[in-house]
Design a protein around this nucleic acid. Structure first.
Lengths: 113, 113
DNA sequence: CAGGATCCGGGGGGATACTG
DNA sequence: CAGTATCCCCCCGGATCCTG
C-alpha cells in the first residue's frame, strides 16, 4: 500500500490526473496544463500511471505523431480523492505559507557561534 | 501550491494525519501505528506537519519524557481528503498490483542481445 | 510532436549509534 | 522515551541534446 500511496499521493500524479477529468489530452497539452513540470517528470509520471492502469496511452500513427492520454475507469475512481487534495492545497496555500514563516521566526536556524 | 502538495500528498504525511483522527498520540505510538516508517522519517514528517500548522507538538516535562501530537483545526480540514486517498490506496492495492504485473509482462525489460 | 538518452548535483531515506 | 547526529547510497529531478 505504501507503493500505491507513493504513486497516487505524488504531487505530479495528482495534478496530471486532475487535468484529465472529463477529457483526453495530448502530451504537449498536459505539459502546458501542469505548470512547472519538466518534460522528463511528465513522461515518468505518465508511465507510472499507465503501468498502474490509471490511464491509457493511445498512439496515432500520423505525422506529426499524436499521443493521447485518457483516464481509465480505475483512474476515474481516484479523481474525487485526488482533486479534493489538490483543492485543499490550493485553498490553504496562503495560510500554510504564513505558518511556515511564523515557524521560521520562532525556530531560527542555528547560527555558527 | 506545489510545495504544499508535496507535503500533504506525501505518503507518510497522509498516514500520520490519518492516525491522528479524533485522538492524540505519542511519538512511540505513532511509530508503531504507521507501519514501515523509520524513526528518522517520522521525526521529519512530524516537523513538517508542525511547521505547516497541521498539528501541534506538546512536550510534558516528565521523566520519562512524553511528547504528544494532535491535529490542529487546519489539520482536521485535511482529514477527509487524506483518508479518502489512503482508503483508495488500500482498496485498490491488489488491482494495481495485478496491473503492474501485466505491464511488466507486456513491456519486458530490455535484454542484452 | 513526443519522447528517449545522458549527465549531474542535491536531497530522500535507511541503519546505526548516541543523548537529555 | 523521544529524539539528534552521522554515514552513505540511491534515486529524484532538472538541463540539455538527440531521434522517429
Amino acid at each position: 500500500m505504501l507503493g500505491v500511496l507513493g504513486v497516487v499521493g505524488d504531487k505530479w500524479s495528482i495534478l496530471v490526473v486532475g487535468q484529465l477529468r472529463d477529457r483526453t489530452l495530448r502530451f504537449g497539452e498536459l505539459h502546458r496544463a501542469v505548470t512547472g513540470i519538466s518534460q522528463r517528470m511528465l513522461t515518468l509520471t505518465l508511465r507510472q500511471l499507465e503501468r498502474d492502469g490509471l490511464l491509457t496511452r493511445t498512439v496515432y500513427a500520423s505525422v506529426p505523431p499524436r499521443v493521447e492520454y485518457t483516464l481509465t475507469e480505475l483512474g476515474s475512481t481516484l479523481l474525487d480523492a485526488a482533486t479534493a487534495l489538490g483543492e485543499w492545497a490550493a485553498a490553504h496555500r496562503e495560510e500554510i505559507g504564513d505558518n511556515r514563516r511564523r515557524y521560521s521566526d520562532a525556530h531560527p536556524p542555528r547560527s555558527r557561534s
